[in-house]
Amino acid sequence: MLASRWTRLILVLLVVLALQTTLFKELRPFGVAGQVMLLFVICAGIQFGVSIGAIVGLIAGLMFDFVVSTPAGLGSIALGITGATAGLYLRFFPNPIWWLRLVSIGFVSIIGEIYILIAQAMIGLGVVLEFRLIKIIAVVTVINVCLTPGFLLITRWTLSERKKDR
């Protein structure tokens, strides 16, 4: 059963979501919570392309939406678009250098946070534009870049095709 990468994805996402709602909710450097669900989606997109990135983003977002109080489906759309955006990286850099990959993950993290804000604003949720937003985006980006090596391995293991998948 674990041979199917989609089954693995759901199980791994449950664990990542649990980490998001426990550990990363508590560890708040500069008062900002790290967004490991976002990082997982970006890593999936950056390694497996647009379509896989989008699917992983939509599923991860949907799961995340069910545990937060924002409208269900909103995070799904935002993370789906983020995953697809991350997947575009493979089109521009088919054989990436390691540091370029880190830079790209940082860049997509910034875009992903902006997508979430735009999505919230589009349905009328109050978004206050203030200096703190820049701090949130900056801290989330730094945390994501720091955690990237581990999450690249996890996403690779989760989404790699085994014999049964083919």
Binding site: L58, I59, L62, D65, P71, G73, S76, I77, G80
Partner: peptide
């Protein structure tokens, strides 16, 4: 992707 997107929009 289309199915998941439509589901998300419907849920919102």
């Amino acid at each position: 992707i289309i199915l998941l997107t439509l589901t998300s929009i419907m849920l919102v």
